[in-house]
Amino acid sequence: MAKPNFQNLHVYKLSEKLADEIWTIVSKWDKFAKDTIGKQIVRAADSIGANIAEGSGRYNFQDNRRFVRIARASLYETRHWLRRAYTRNILTVEQVNRLIPIIDELSPKLNAYLNSIGNIPEKPTDN
């Protein structure tokens, strides 16, 4: 069975990497931290890739773009929860240093992917 196209996208692979890294970190938190910030940050991070996948399954580029915008909003939400976790001394500097490079790469690639949807060059015509 062939992979759906979204699984080949670098931006999707980065979203998975971020979500998996966050899952690994949050899984080690105490119960209170998991129940409050942990569940929120895991859902937000998982939503990035889920929306990229869902958008790629839509029948027109407008719908795809809408879902990629939602993915971008989920990335912003993830950033928010990471800031809260760090401020509340739940995330260590080492953990932040593992996550920031992924986010710093994912953010512009997500915007580039959004801008690329629907911008398929026209085929040259024979005269």
Score class of each variant (00 low, 15 high):
residue 2 A to I: 13
residue 2 A to P: 15
residue 3 K to W: 13
residue 5 N to R: 15
residue 6 F to N: 09
residue 6 F to M: 08
residue 7 Q to L: 10
residue 7 Q to S: 09
residue 10 H to Q: 15
residue 10 H to C: 06
residue 11 V to Q: 03
residue 11 V to I: 12
residue 13 K to W: 08
residue 14 L to H: 05
residue 15 S to K: 01
residue 16 E to W: 11
residue 17 K to A: 14
residue 17 K to N: 14
residue 19 A to H: 00
residue 20 D to I: 04
residue 21 E to K: 05
residue 21 E to L: 11
residue 22 I to A: 00
residue 23 W to Q: 08
residue 24 T to C: 11
residue 25 I to Q: 07
residue 25 I to C: 06
residue 26 V to A: 03
residue 27 S to I: 00
residue 28 K to V: 04
residue 30 D to M: 04
residue 33 A to P: 04
residue 34 K to Q: 11
residue 34 K to M: 02
residue 36 T to D: 06
residue 37 I to E: 11
residue 40 Q to M: 09
residue 41 I to E: 14
residue 41 I to C: 09
residue 41 I to A: 10
residue 42 V to I: 13
residue 43 R to M: 08
residue 45 A to R: 01
residue 46 D to A: 14
residue 49 G to N: 05
residue 49 G to Y: 01
residue 50 A to P: 06
residue 50 A to W: 01
residue 51 N to L: 03
residue 55 G to S: 09
residue 56 S to C: 14
residue 57 G to N: 07
residue 57 G to L: 07
residue 58 R to F: 13
residue 59 Y to T: 12
residue 60 N to C: 10
residue 61 F to G: 01
residue 61 F to T: 01
residue 61 F to I: 00
residue 62 Q to P: 12
residue 62 Q to A: 14
residue 63 D to I: 02
residue 65 R to C: 08
residue 68 V to K: 02
residue 70 I to D: 06
residue 71 A to Q: 05
residue 72 R to S: 15
residue 72 R to G: 05
residue 73 A to I: 03
residue 73 A to Q: 00
residue 76 Y to S: 08
residue 77 E to L: 06
residue 78 T to H: 07
residue 78 T to Q: 04
residue 78 T to V: 04
residue 79 R to F: 05
residue 82 L to A: 08
residue 83 R to W: 03
residue 88 R to P: 00
residue 90 I to V: 12
residue 91 L to I: 00
residue 92 T to D: 12
residue 93 V to A: 10
residue 95 Q to W: 14
residue 96 V to R: 09
residue 96 V to D: 10
residue 99 L to R: 00
residue 100 I to K: 13
residue 102 I to Q: 04
residue 103 I to C: 01
residue 104 D to E: 15
residue 104 D to Q: 09
residue 105 E to Q: 15
residue 105 E to I: 05
residue 106 L to H: 03
residue 107 S to Q: 07
residue 110 L to M: 10
residue 111 N to V: 06
residue 112 A to D: 11
residue 113 Y to L: 04
residue 116 S to N: 14
residue 117 I to G: 04
residue 117 I to T: 04
residue 119 N to K: 15
residue 120 I to K: 14
residue 121 P to S: 10
residue 121 P to C: 10
residue 121 P to Q: 13
residue 122 E to T: 11
residue 125 T to A: 06
residue 126 D to M: 11
residue 127 N to C: 00
residue 127 N to R: 06
